[in-house]
């Protein structure tokens, strides 16, 4: 029993790592630009397939392939931001219009991927597939360790960037009070685009790790995105740190649920918690209370 719970903890952590990376980016874009970027899921899949294209179809070295994928994915995301989201935001403050545009992009990108690479699943060769550590009866794959490390570092770096750099502080200032920030000369398009780029860059390792564990399919982003949305709510809209911790919590929670119940009930648990938060504690754990009050 102890073995099983520890093993499930390891599994839960490595799944939570993916959710964390996706949620951190999603939360950053939401808090800075106030955009529910649902097409994040499609960009997630896109970055995975681009890595596959460069690493396996073009035969480039792995690191180069991942970098290229990151650059191209960020480019796509920034173009989406500047060409679609920004004009819509300027025209109307209605966030639903942007949600709809984002859903449209999700459909278009995801199915374009299906047309190019099919839906049968593509496999990314995992150079670390064989490396596994054994602690007692608990197995920890090197991939797990890499996943968790990348997620923690990526999230920490994002938060450090927001707190320690000039641009990061500008982004936070814009997120907390857009009107004031504009008065002091912060360019909304710039901070929005940077948020989009960082959020997308965080997706790339998540997509590659997903490709290592299972296979790349065009719909692969939807599951992590659903968890990211739940994590953002639990963590509190507006808080990047909250989203990351929320993702970690939900990932571990669903692993804990699967200790006692058939594994598929874990999704229901996570979204029930999201529901409770959104209705009764809309500020979440770390959210900006004023903004959630305003939404009422």
């Amino acid at each position: 029993m102890v073995d099983l719970s520890l093993q499930l903890l390891v599994v839960g952590l490595s799944q939570a790592a993916i959710y964390m990376l996706v949620a951190t980016g999603f939360a950053l874009i939401l808090s800075v630009s106030r955009i529910f970027h649902f097409a994040h899921a499609a960009v997630f899949a896109l970055s995975g397939f681009l890595a596959f294209l460069f690493a396996q179809q073009a035969g480039l070295p792995f690191v180069l392939a991942v970098l290229l994928s990151a650059v191209l994915s960020c480019l796509v995301a920034v173009v989406i931001y500047l060409q679609i989201y920004t004009p819509l935001q300027q025209r109307s403050g209605n966030s639903f219009i942007i949600v709809l545009a984002s859903i449209g992009l999700q459909f278009a990108i995801e199915n374009s991927l299906a047309l190019i690479w099919g839906t049968g699943g593509r496999y990314l060769d995992n150079p670390m597939a064989a490396a596994t550590f054994k602690a007692g009866n608990v197995f920890i794959a090197l991939t797990d360790i890499v996943a968790i490390t990348v997620a923690v570092l990526g999230t920490a770096a994002t938060i450090a960037f927001l707190n320690m750099t000039r641009l990061g502080r500008a982004m936070r200032a814009y997120s907390e009070n857009p009107v004031m920030a504009r008065v002091v000369g912060i360019e909304p398009k710039l901070v929005g685009a940077v948020a989009m780029a960082i959020g997308t860059a965080l997706l790339v390792p998540a997509a590659v790790i997903t490709g290592w564990y299972s296979s790349l399919v065009p719909t692969m982003g939807m599951g992590p995105l659903l968890y990211a949305v739940a994590a953002v709510v639990v963590g509190g809209i507006g808080s990047v740190k909250g989203a990351a911790l929320g993702a970690l919590m939900l990932g571990l929670l669903s692993a804990a649920i699967s200790f006692h119940f058939p594994a598929f009930w874990s999704d229901a648990g996570a979204f029930l918690i999201m529901m409770v938060f959104v209705i009764w504690f809309p500020a979440g754990l770390f959210g900006i209370r004023a903004r959630s009050q305003a939404a009422r």
Binding site: A101, L105, A114, L115
Partner: peptide, 17 residues
């Protein structure tokens, strides 16, 4: 099916814009 879904997405974005 995929082409129609791509078009669906493009149409949605175009309508919104």
């Amino acid at each position: 099916a995929h082409v129609s879904q791509v078009l669906l997405g493009v149409i949605l974005v175009a309508v919104v814009m």
